[in-house]
Measured scan of single mutants.
Amino acid sequence: ALNRGDKVRIKRTESYWYGDVGTVASVEKSGILYPVIVRFDRVNYNGFSGSASGVNTNNFAENELELVQAAA
C-alpha cells in the first residue's frame, strides 16, 4: 500500500501528469474510488508555472500509480 510522502509515477494515460512523478499527500481509507491524493511540482494547464492558480494535486487509484521511492 502507498503511504504519505511516497514518490509515485503516474500511469493513467489520459492524465496531464502521465509519466510524471508526484508525492503522495494523503491516502483516504473510506473506500472511495480514487483514494490517493498526489501532489506535483508543476501545475496543470489551469494555471501558469509559478502561479497559485493552477491545480497541482489530483486523486488517483492505487493501480494507476507506480512506487518510485518509499517515504523515509
Rank of each mutant, 00 (worst) to 15 (best):
E64T: 02
Y45I: 15
N58W: 15
D41A: 06
I37D: 03
N63L: 05
N56V: 07
R4D: 04
D6H: 02
L2C: 08
R42V: 06
A72G: 14
N58S: 15
R12Q: 06
L67I: 07
V21L: 06
Y18V: 03
G47Y: 06
N58K: 05
N46R: 02
V8N: 01
T57Q: 12
A25G: 03
Y18A: 04
Q69F: 08
L33Q: 12
V27T: 04
K7W: 07
K29G: 12
I37P: 00
F60E: 01
F40C: 02
E66S: 04
A25H: 11
N3G: 13
A61P: 01
G31Q: 13
D20S: 07
V36E: 00
A70L: 10
R42K: 14
W17K: 00
T13W: 08
E64F: 03
V8A: 00
N56D: 13
R12L: 06
Y34N: 07
W17L: 02
K7H: 07
E66T: 06
R39I: 14
D6R: 03
Q69D: 08
K7D: 02
I32W: 09
F40S: 00
Y45C: 15
K29N: 13
N3K: 15
I37Y: 07
L33W: 04
E14N: 13
S15F: 03
A61G: 09
E28G: 11
V8D: 04
G22D: 02
A52M: 10
A71E: 11
V27E: 01
E62C: 11
R42Q: 06
D20G: 03
S15N: 03
K11R: 10
P35E: 11
V27R: 02
V27G: 00
G22C: 04
Y16R: 03
R12I: 04
V43E: 09
E64R: 00
N59M: 13
R12W: 03
E62H: 14
R12D: 06
Y34I: 03
F48E: 15
N46W: 06
E62G: 06
R9A: 04
R12N: 13
V36F: 11
V21G: 01
L65K: 01
Q69G: 07
I32M: 12
G54Q: 04
E62Q: 09
N58D: 15
N56K: 05
E64I: 01
G22P: 02
G31V: 08
E64H: 02
N59I: 05
A72N: 10
G22T: 02
T57F: 13
R42L: 05
Y34S: 04
N63E: 12
L65E: 00
N46K: 05
A25L: 15
I37R: 11
G54E: 07
V8R: 01
E66Y: 05
S51C: 14
R39H: 13
R9H: 03
I10V: 14
T57C: 14
L65R: 03
V27Y: 07
W17I: 01
G50K: 02
Y34C: 08
R9D: 03
V55R: 05
T13Q: 14
F48Q: 14
N59P: 07
G31M: 10
T57I: 12
T13V: 14
F48T: 15
S51K: 04
F40D: 00
Y45E: 15
Y16D: 03
N56F: 08
S49E: 15
L65G: 00
G19P: 01
E66K: 03
F60Q: 01
V55K: 07
R4Y: 09
A1G: 13
A25D: 14
A70I: 09
G54S: 06
T13K: 13
A25C: 15
T23E: 13
Y18F: 11
V55T: 13
G54A: 09
F40I: 03
F48L: 13
E28K: 10
G50F: 06
V27S: 02
V55P: 05
S49Q: 13
K11F: 04
L2F: 15
E28C: 12
R9P: 03
T23Y: 08
E66D: 07
K7T: 08
Y16V: 05
E28P: 05
I32H: 10
R9T: 06
W17G: 00
N58V: 10
V21K: 01
V8W: 02
N58T: 11
V43K: 08
F40Y: 02
N63Y: 14
N46M: 09
G47Q: 09
R9K: 11
E62P: 10
S30P: 09
G5I: 00
Q69M: 12
V36Q: 00
V27Q: 01
V21T: 07
G50M: 06
G5L: 03
N58F: 10
R12E: 04
F48I: 14
K7S: 06
G5R: 03
V55S: 11
G50H: 06
V8H: 01
L67R: 04
A72C: 13
A52N: 12
I10N: 04
G50C: 12
K29T: 14
A52H: 12
G19T: 03
L65Q: 02
K29H: 13
A71P: 06
N3S: 12
A1Y: 13
V68M: 05
T57Y: 12
D41N: 07
S15C: 10
T23M: 07
F48D: 15
V43L: 09
K11V: 06
I32G: 15
A52L: 12
N44Q: 15
E66P: 03
E64N: 01
R42I: 06
V36W: 04
L2G: 01
Y16S: 05
Y16M: 04
N56W: 08
E66N: 03
A72R: 08
Q69P: 09
L2Q: 01
P35I: 13
V55C: 14
P35L: 10
G22K: 00
R4H: 08
V43T: 08
E14H: 09
N56Q: 08
A71H: 12
A72F: 12
F48S: 14
T23L: 06
A71Y: 13
L2Y: 13
G19S: 03
V8I: 01
L33G: 09
A52P: 11
F60H: 01
D41I: 09
F40V: 02
Y34K: 12
A25S: 10
R4W: 04
S26E: 10
N44H: 14
Y16N: 05
L65D: 05
V38M: 00
A1D: 08
